[in-house]
Each structure stands twice: as C-alpha cells, then as structure tokens.
Design a protein around this nucleic acid. Sequence first.
DNA 1: TATAGGGCTTCCAGTCACTGGAAGCTCAAG
DNA 2: CTTGAGCTTCCAGTGACTGGAAGCCCTATA
Lengths: 130, 130
Amino acid sequence: MNIGEVADRSGIPPKTIRYYEDIGLIRPQRSDNGYRAFRETDLHKLAFLGRARALGFSIEDCRVLLSLYEDETRESAQVKAIAEEHLSAIDDKIAQLREMRETLSHLVDACHGDHRPDCPILGELAGATE
Amino acid sequence: MNIGEVADRSGIPPKTIRYYEDIGLIRPQRSDNGYRAFRETDLHKLAFLGRARALGFSIEDCRVLLSLYEDETRESAQVKAIAEEHLSAIDDKIAQLREMRETLSHLVDACHGDHRPDCPILGELAGATE
DNA sequence: TATAGGGCTTCCAGTCACTGGAAGCTCAAG
DNA sequence: CTTGAGCTTCCAGTGACTGGAAGCCCTATA
C-alpha cells in the first residue's frame, strides 16, 4: 500500500503519517522506488493511533499505549493507569473551561451589545470587579 | 517601573511581558540605560491582558479587545460579538471534552486493572467496537 | 514516444503562546 | 572593587501537526 491509500483507509492525512514515522511511531518498509510500503499491521497501528488521539491521548501516551498493545506480557493495570491519569486531566480542563464559560456568559448577558460604548465585559477586563 | 516590579504587580512573568512587547501589545518607553520604563497605563494594560487571557481569549482577540478598550467611540456590540464567538468556541471544546470523558470513563470502568493482559481500553483502541 | 497529470519524496518554515538558557550590560550594597 | 541581582538581546524548543517548494516516479493518452 502507498501512503495515499493508507491515508484514505485510516482517515489520517499523509502529512501526519509521515510525521508519525519521523517520530518513530510507525516504521513502514520502503519499495525500490523509495515510496513507503505499508502493510496491514501499519494500517492497524495508524487506526489505533487515530482512535487514541481522538480520545485526547498525547503522542507520548500513544507511544506507550502502542507498546503495551504489542506487549503480550502487559498488565491491564498499566493501561488503566494511563487512562485514569488522562481522564483526570480531561476533568481538570473541563472544570477550567466551565469556569471561563461561567464568567464569560454572565458578562455577555450583562452587555447590551448596541451602539453605545459602555460595556461590562471591558469593565471586568479593566479590573472593575474589586 | 522596571520589568520586575511590573511582573510582580501584574502577575505576568517578565518573559511574557517582553513577548507582549515583541508582538506589539504594549509599547513601554525606555530609560537611558536601555531598561524598559513602564508607566501605570502599561501596568493597567498588562492586567487587562492577564484577565483576558485567563478567560481564554486568544492573543489576537486580546489585541482587538485592547484597542476597543482604548477607543472611546467603540460600540459595545463589537465587544459582545467577540465574547460570544469565544463563548461558543468554549462550548464546543467542552462538548468535545465531555464526549472524550464519556467514552474514556466507560472504558476505564470496564478495565479491571490487574496483572492480566486483557484490557477493554486497548480493545477499543484496536477497533473492537464495530 | 512525448507529455501531462497526479502521487510520491524530502526539507524548511510556520502555527500558538510562551519558556528556557546563554552571553553580556547595569546597578546598588558592602 | 567586587559581588550578585536584575536587566538586555537572541536563539531554540515546546506539541502536533500543516503548508509549500522543488523534484522524482508512474501511468495513461495522443
């Protein structure tokens, strides 16, 4: 398989696939003409990476997850630990975004949004609250 | 005021303040010795930037917000539009994170997390779902 | 057989918002 | 006069790609 077909079948753009090879996540073979020659296992790995990235795992997490996936002697506790850590990071991010959302939505509601210059959003940013 | 004092009083690190000058968000004067000489208005702007960034506004949003703040003829509708767009971007991000969270927490719950190798998290990443 | 096109290759640069570090100047205290 | 903190500039790195340029390869058609 050439990179185009793999990109279509995995949903990962060619640029990203080359990048993943650069950083050592996959190691496709090469044809005589210099083209990357992907096997089914490469495609499988890329799909794995796509799903892991879609769940928000970092590239470094993905690297470890892939190696665990290929390691017959892994312990599921190792996988779970990574996932739990990531889950708590997601929770932190959600909490932070919710706080922003809260403040911002109050300000947006308070702003009449017309042709006049006075604006509680700018007021808050300028430090009106204290 | 030198940069250290401004950093302390605004809560923004010196490196970041220099960066903000680099990209034209602030324009502190210079003393004869080459040190940046900050006035109260510079401090004020930096505090403004700090609050805007804490609400998640991008640097480019901040640039526009600052210019609106300094523009006596602004219309509050302009500010509100920026804030509303940002709010909806935050909502999108929250929704995306919640989806990740949902999937991931189910998987974490399903994983027994012991010494055995079989793991539904890896199973899902490998494409077991369909 | 020439050529046109699309796909493939590498390499460099840019994104966003900083952050770290090195080399060197300035200033106040002892 | 030295020490050390604080300031300066400049360069490089972060994460995870993404865009673009220059150039090779392959296939199909005229």
